[in-house]
Design a protein around this nucleic acid. Sequence first.
DNA 1: CACAAACTGTTAGTACACAAACTAATTTGC
DNA 2: GCAAATTAGTTTGTGTACTAACAGTTTGTG
Lengths: 157, 157
Amino acid sequence: MKKMPLSVFDTDHHVGDTMVTAADYQLEDQVGFIMRCVNQRHLSIFSRLIPELTPTQFSALAKLCATGQASQNELGRMIAIDAATIKGVVDRLKHRGLISSESQPSDLRRLILKPTEEGRQLFHQISAAARQVSEDTLKPLSEKEKHVFMNLLDKLR
Amino acid sequence: MKKMPLSVFDTDHHVGDTMVTAADYQLEDQVGFIMRCVNQRHLSIFSRLIPELTPTQFSALAKLCATGQASQNELGRMIAIDAATIKGVVDRLKHRGLISSESQPSDLRRLILKPTEEGRQLFHQISAAARQVSEDTLKPLSEKEKHVFMNLLDKLR
DNA sequence: CACAAACTGTTAGTACACAAACTAATTTGC
DNA sequence: GCAAATTAGTTTGTGTACTAACAGTTTGTG
């Protein structure tokens, strides 16, 4: 289904009393809608290859392993997660013993986060799978298409 | 702070026992990560132009206006939302008087959903803004790039 | 006909994601 | 030097989104 040529988008609208019709808005052609679908597929690939963590949790752990340490808000900013959300993510990672936190003496507002040894080990264990997730997600595209797509996607950031 | 050049990304890793290091995984180059960022931007555009509804609620209403009616699960399937999630979406739309539901006599399991007159009016009112959302989201791309991007995105669905 | 299989809707549980409102600590600007 | 602004973290509330488990209902097949 949905294989009708785009050049034709159904012209059989217009009833007479209103000029706006349902037919001139095609939900399944909208960026947001397709992105949500693509994201669903990506999520399913991710949870299959990396059942231990959610994408968000992995992002946080990966960034923390890369930087060594960061405050909670700082970590959120680095991976584009707002303050209210990062709290829950950090709590869950902390609860599982993958990261540790202690308040910073020079600024008592700050919580310094660091990956634990167990956290680092887990990250190293699954980082190969993480690369595979990206590869699998882009699998429907040719090498050239992948490059073009990533380039355009980056422009929409 | 954190303004150290990326070209240097901490090379002081490597402990000796494993070959996998932190530096060879660049979070911000991964499809999933960038898609989440693009989605954030899209969401902010959407809620600015259409503060009345969330993208999911709008999808449901739009599809229901396009088809006239559908059962709850059916509606979910049409817009790629699972049964548990669509229930909440439908409940909220119903609560706001935008759609109505009645059980289908010929199959007592089914709830037949229809947009109310108010729901149809709202949809028609905001459908122009909805098109604008897509346009604004893709604004960073040229006409040619938009076409290429949508084509590739569709392949990843 | 009977009964297993499939389907519809519901609930509970987990996990983002963001807005708004709040406290506490620090930095700034006059 | 001190009020104002900013920053860090927390809490609450709303809205997706998916999994798993469950109760009715319908249907296909033996």
